[in-house]
Design a protein around this nucleic acid. Structure first.
Lengths: 229, 229
DNA sequence: ATCAACCATATTGTCAACAATCTCGTTGAC
DNA sequence: GTCAACGAGATTGTTGACAATATGGTTGAT
């Protein structure tokens, strides 16, 4: 890849996107140090660009920035993941209610399609497809609601918990549990029943909270101080 | 003021706090340009510090940062303020419910005190005091809930709407309308009735939404393009 | 063997000069 | 009079060198 030198303003985006991607892919463990020069060489940008990208990521809560000590991938405890998910429940139920009232025909058609594909994915045992559809469902409801502020908050919150979401979807029996909940949300939004949509969304995310609460603490963080020999 | 030169790391905080304060005080109008060199002279810091502070403010949604064109105070439309307030309703009702369940004795005592002072402020027609107590009430409920994630989201959202809140509190009859709502929230949290607290918080913030929706569009922005001669 | 002081190195923070770009008033043609 | 091209000044973006600080290992005393 004759990448060459990535110029400043773009470097910021490149580094940000790159770290985000590795974060989601689990290639960067929570607690891992992020050294500016190292990153600048990896992505072929200047240190300034890396610096700015790290600021962005810190503002999003993905990275922890300690003065004079550099950046680390932020460690999100199960406890915090639960709180994040509780906020998601509050905001997604708002979106679901509004989506039921104001979704366009295209949105409703897409929701129906997602529902069918989800059922098929579960029947086929295709977890990856189901997981992708899951994200797409939540996104579609959020966008269809017209609640741009809530949507952007949800994006931020989801970014922080991708790691946990990933682990949850792999639990045996979890898809069988969540599929009917997803279908209930879709049904309510498509038929325009706001109250039912709100309730269904809340019930669904609350069940994620319950699932999270039953999660063991250690999640593969790079331990810096809490190592038990 | 023998201020001297404020050094980098602190300059960032100083500039951030300074702009925030002027923003809240209405000394900086929405749409106003924020020129880096100008700010650096005002606050006695370097341009770098100003730059970083502006990034922070942009991440918080208080400032709009257009590449190659500089920073402006972000214009928040009434429509957006409504959406922000709807999110607040969702998150504050979550906090109220949890606060009812998990507030400590100190929190409950403080809430009672706030209620009494609020009643007195309204009776005295002291709008400033009432406004300050209003903020303190919402803060106290959020903190007492133990929902740190929701609390930090609410902080951010409130920062964006201070201007609107300010205007609302000045409407004749508004305090008389909101006081019983505030007292209902306090009563429910203090007595530990989670469902009532959630309902009361939602009702209150929803009434703010209604009030906002009845707001004329122009809010004193520095018009750059939409000026009507 | 243990511990504290110390030093070399790695890493982040700061700054000022330079480059690139935009803004806006001026000029000139039609 | 209107409009487009131009250019000077203002403003933001970028860079590289330097300063300040933290880190981790080494040394030497006890």
């Amino acid at each position: 890849m004759a990448d060459g030198q990535v110029t400043g303003q773009e470097g910021r985006r490149v580094v940000g996107a790159g770290i985000r991607a590795r974060l989601s892919a689990g290639e960067m463990a929570p607690g891992q140090r992020l050294v500016e020069q190292e990153l600048s060489e990896t992505f072929g940008t200047t240190r300034s660009a890396v610096r700015e990208a790290l600021q962005d990521l810190a503002a999003e809560g993905l990275v922890e920035l300690i003065p004079r000590r550099g950046a680390r991938v932020r460690v999100i405890s199960v406890e915090e993941a639960v709180q994040i998910t509780e906020c998601r429940a509050a905001l997604e139920s708002l979106c679901a209610r509004r989506a039921a009232a104001s979704a366009g025909d295209a949105d409703r058609a897409e929701l129906r399609a997602i529902g069918e594909q989800m059922s098929r994915a579960v029947a086929d045992g295709d977890l990856d497809a189901y997981s992708a559809l899951n994200r797409r469902l939540h996104d579609t409801v959020a966008r269809a609601s017209g609640q741009e502020v809530a949507t952007s908050l949800l994006d931020r919150l989801n970014g922080q918990t991708v790691r946990f979401q990933f682990r949850l979807a792999l639990r045996p029996g979890r898809p069988a549990q969540s599929l009917p909940q997803h279908l209930a949300i879709i049904e309510a939004v498509v038929t325009g029943d706001g109250a039912a949509a709100e309730a269904a969304a809340r019930a669904h995310v609350d069940s994620v909270v319950a699932e999270l609460a039953a999660t063991p603490q250690r999640t593969g963080a790079v331990d810096s101080e809490a190592a038990v020999p």
